[in-house]
Simulated assay, not measured.
Amino acid sequence: MLYQAEFWVAVAFVLLMAVFAYFGIHHTVLKALDHRAARIKAELDDARQLRDEAAKLLAEYKARHAKAEGEAQEIIAFAKAEAERIASEAKTKLEDFVARRTKTAESKIALAEAQALADVRAAAANAAVTAASAILSQSVTGSVADDLLTKGIAEVKAKLN
């Protein structure tokens, strides 16, 4: 038994443990493990706190995004309504402008027609007077002719004008 390696390894292990116990190494190892456990626990607490803050920030940004989205939709709806209103006003103004221009053109046309009709009547009256005076001057002579001519011209002018 004294010549077996396992025996001497067991003896050395027991002696090593006795030396460690004598110098209080086990207390040092336990303190180091306790410190490490406390440090890990603190890191985990910090990580939880950071995760909670991140979740809070995420919720806040989502709320801001939703609010901004709603405001954008309101702006778009207002712009569409404003564009429709402006288009409607422009259409109404254009229709009024076209109606006024049409009335003005129609009144100018009517005035031109009346002027042309008056010019035609005057030209016809002058032509009739000239023709009547030419016919009467050739067929009737003397004072009777002059009276008839004057009377006929007056009648024609009165009827045509």
Score class of each variant (00 low, 15 high):
Gln138Asn: 14
Thr92His: 13
Val156Met: 05
Ala131Asn: 03
Glu95Gly: 04
Ile40Met: 13
Thr102Tyr: 05
Asp147Val: 14
Val156Cys: 03
Arg101Pro: 01
Ile153Pro: 01
Ala122Tyr: 00
Leu160Trp: 01
Ala59Met: 12
Lys103Cys: 04
Ile135Gly: 05
Ala55Thr: 09
Ala77Asp: 14
Ala114Asp: 02
Val98Ala: 10
Ala72Tyr: 04
Ala123Met: 06
Asp52His: 07
Leu149Lys: 11
Lys151Gln: 12
Arg101Tyr: 06
Asn126Thr: 10
Ala87Tyr: 03
Leu58Asn: 13
Ser107Lys: 10
Ala90Thr: 06
Glu82Phe: 04
Ala132His: 02
Leu50Lys: 14
Gly152Cys: 12
Ala99Gln: 12
Ala132Pro: 01
Glu84Phe: 00
Glu89Ile: 09
Gly70Pro: 03
Ser137Asp: 12
Glu82Thr: 12
Thr141His: 15
Ala158Gln: 11
Ala128Cys: 04
Ile75Tyr: 10
Thr102His: 07
Arg101Asp: 07
Ala63Lys: 09
Ser137Gln: 10
Gly142Pro: 01
Lys80Ala: 14
Lys91Ile: 13
Ile153Met: 01
Ser107Phe: 05
Ala90Leu: 09
Ile135Glu: 05
Arg51Pro: 00
Arg39His: 08
Ala37Val: 10
Leu44Gln: 13
Leu44Trp: 02
Glu113Ser: 10
Glu106Asp: 10
Ala47Glu: 14
Ala127His: 03
Lys103Thr: 10
Thr130Gln: 11
Ile76Gly: 05
Lys151Tyr: 05
Val129Met: 01
Ile153Tyr: 02
Ala128Met: 06
Glu82Cys: 04
Glu60Met: 12
Asp96Arg: 08
Ile109Asp: 03
Ala81His: 01
Asp96Asn: 14
Ala123Ser: 10
Ala42Ser: 11
Arg51Cys: 07
Gly152Leu: 13
Asp146Ser: 08
Ala105Leu: 14
Asp46Lys: 09
Val120Ile: 13
Val129Tyr: 00
Glu53Phe: 02
Arg101Ile: 11
Thr104Leu: 15
Ala68Asp: 07
Ala145Ile: 03
Glu69Thr: 13
Arg51His: 11
Ala37Trp: 06
Phe78Thr: 15
Ala154His: 00
Arg39Lys: 14
Thr102Leu: 15
Val98Phe: 04
Asp52Ala: 15
Lys157Arg: 14
Ala72Ser: 11
Lys56Leu: 12
Ala134Leu: 03
Glu43Lys: 07
Lys41Thr: 08
Ala158Trp: 03
Ala110Glu: 09
Asn126Met: 11
Ala83Thr: 03
Lys93Arg: 13
Gln49Val: 14
Tyr61Ile: 06
Ala87Cys: 05
Arg100Pro: 01
Glu71Gln: 13
Asp46Gln: 10
